[in-house]
Design a protein around this nucleic acid. Sequence first.
RNA 1: GGGGUGGUAGUUCAGUUGGUUAGAACGUCGGCCUGUCACGCCGAAGGUCGCGGGUUCGAGCCCCGUCCACCCCGCCA
Length: 607
Amino acid sequence: MSARTGCGAAGEALIGQELKFSGWVHRRRDHGGLIFIDLRDRSGLLQVVFNPEVARDAHDLAHGLRAEYVIEVSGSLGRRPEGTENPGIPTGRVELYAQRLAILNEAAPLPFGLEDQDTSETLKLRHRYLDLRRPQMQKNLIARHRAVKAIRDYLDSEGFLEIETPMLTKSTPEGARDYLVPSRVNPGQFYALPQSPQLFKQILMASGYEKYFQVARCFRDEDLRADRQPEFTQVDIETSFMDGDEIMRITEGMLAAAFHQVLDIEIERVPFERLSYKEAMERFGSDKPDLRIGREICDMAGPAQKGSFKVFLDAIEKGGRVLGLRGIGMAGLSRKEIDDLTNSVKEMGAKGLAWIKIKSGPGSPITKYDSPIAKFFPEEALREMAGKLKAEDGDMMLFVADSEKTAQAVIGKLRLELGKRYPVDFKEDEWRFCWITDFPLLEWDEEEGRFTAVHHPFTSPSDPDVPRIMDGDINDKELLSSLKAKAYDVVLNGCEIGGGSVRIHRQDLQSRMFSMLGISAADAQMKFGFLLEALQYGAPPHGGLALGLDRLVMLMCGAESIRDVIAFPKTAKAADLMSGAPSGVEPKQLRELHIKLDVPAAEEGGQ
RNA sequence: GGGGUGGUAGUUCAGUUGGUUAGAACGUCGGCCUGUCACGCCGAAGGUCGCGGGUUCGAGCCCCGUCCACCCCGCCA
């Protein structure tokens, strides 16, 4: 009777036994005579009954119990009297009849109730240790643990080795802004915290480890979002001698294992559906399509050209697009609702929203097109539009006309919004994975006046593009824009959860890649010299993938933000409200680092 | 860097056109209560209206600035 039993483990099988429990006072109901305590530990809740006729001392002591006191209580587990069962909790058919009570620690009144639903984010983060006591948060972190364990076990069974790479690394200006760490013993020099272990994992392939993975913390000094933290965790994978297909298969197996272990869900549709980047943009207006939503985007250039609506004709004239979307059952929308939609479309970057309602006349089967722009189109064009969109009576057709980039982006977002707001064809509880492949290798960066890598500079071009790159003119914008990458993203329910590529393993191609990116040979040598060097000494073909663990677990838990699956997250200003980081430091520390501050005194911050 | 929303009791919020003593619920504290499970009943305490300045006879409310939190754009794979 000395061992501790978990509250959640108290079931009918243990009835009649003398047991010991310890945990937190979740709720108390003091009737003066009988006292009921809901005792909470990691495993669940258990009702404890203090009865003066059973144990006078324990009952007297129990009067002093308050929320979140830490107690140890022992007694016999019994079946609840008929009619007092609580179907709301898993242990609701039993209760503990307390014989002995020990208060292990008292608790001051809490700044917020653990069960309050609307506690402000500030308060929860300030007292994260309390927030983390909430059963939901514990469930999330337990799910996270299970997911990581499932992934580790799976990769281990596939012959992968987990190898750690340094946290203090070399700064590489490509990509995101680095978090810098000053070096005390090298005055004026800095390490960077890794944005990812990218270069190291490639080096490990050159070193012959063949299959590497790591649950790796990564750091990026960029502005935050609900699904973005300054430090986050990637399941980082790299393999030698595998092509993209094989890496995708490993990833699918890994995700299937995680979903099986954590949620007891068997992922259907394996292998995952694959879409080229072009197709994803064309059908869904996004490179991370949410396939749970049925409706797709349609090109409306054909029927648009049969009409005289200037906005449409101009867009096409300028090489842009007219894209349409079916608004299922939206013919009844009020003018105000349409105005609201128009406004949100404008916020997304479009100039406006064109719409046509399809209605039957009262008591008449004749289709009417109700719209300020219907007059610009012959009946035949309107019918063609409806046909393409599969729009029927009671629907509304929505159109965005703009440059291809804007039109696709806007109507893609509109698709998500309508899919979720009018969820006729939105299967919310499905798990829809897909791969996006055939990404462009490079994209023009207006700001920098050069091409940048869409994935990263170590991504291999597609096989047919290799001779075009080696023999072609690297200043040829047409050529550079047309190159395809051996890169692939894995998308779940409209959320990019990972991405990877086959890497360049030949030194000459990698050097050529740097020139295309406008990185001089000297610069490349300075920044990535060790990689270029390693590629010279027998580097195998290799490639891999990085999975965003926080996002994946967030989706698995149905959480709104990755903060809910990270034990100690930071705010939108990258602050830790609990510990008070970041903060100023002692002048002595700065002197040792040879650092002088250049900030107005008021902004230096305290300790 | 830009835009939006919010900040009033420990917590979540209400607070009229600028007008007397800033309210409610929950929580807390005290009392009563032997089948509750959001226990119930009675009573009490609890406020620098984020901070600084301004307008006004008078500011929780209007104006300017600033800080913090959240969301979005830019940025970020």
